[in-house]
Amino acid sequence: MELHLILIFMICASIVAVRTKDLISSVIALSAAGLGLCLAFLILKAPNLAMTQLVVEILCVIVLIRGTINKDLPLVKDGRWLFNTVSTLVFIALFLTLIFLVLKELPRFGEPLMRVSGEYIANGFKKTGSANLVSAITLRFRGYDALGEVAILFAAAIGVLAITRRKGRLHDSNDKK
């Protein structure tokens, strides 16, 4: 159910990112779609991949905003300092409260975290037949994480090849316009 909601949200954000005229709005909508993808990975029980997706998404947002911030920046400087200050304080208080609530749920420092990994250590060799437990976990118990990492790297290679290619379709599109 949550997965479908997140997928609908991602589709809406992608449509906004494609259709909007403002470049920074487009980048922000794209990052919203990426964070929705990160949440979808988290719901599908692939935390390693979700962390990778989060880091890559943050890096992409930084690079894209750095690239587009000189093109057009809708800057409002005057007359809104009261609203800005109040909203900043409200958000800081909100985030601090939420982080306080989250940190109470975490296990305390030094507490053993062997709930899942104990199962892996006990039955890993019997179930997979591999003496290397890390390999057994990354390729058997969490095989879809490895598949997602391979997909990310494949997409990165294809994207770099597509961006840096020499023969483009620039002339064709110019002719059509």
Binding site: S130, A131, N132, V134, S135, T138, L139, A146, E149
Partner: peptide
């Protein structure tokens, strides 16, 4: 050797 000792495809 990643089957029996540390290492792996990546």
């Amino acid at each position: 050797q990643s089957h029996t000792s540390p290492g792996g495809g990546f």
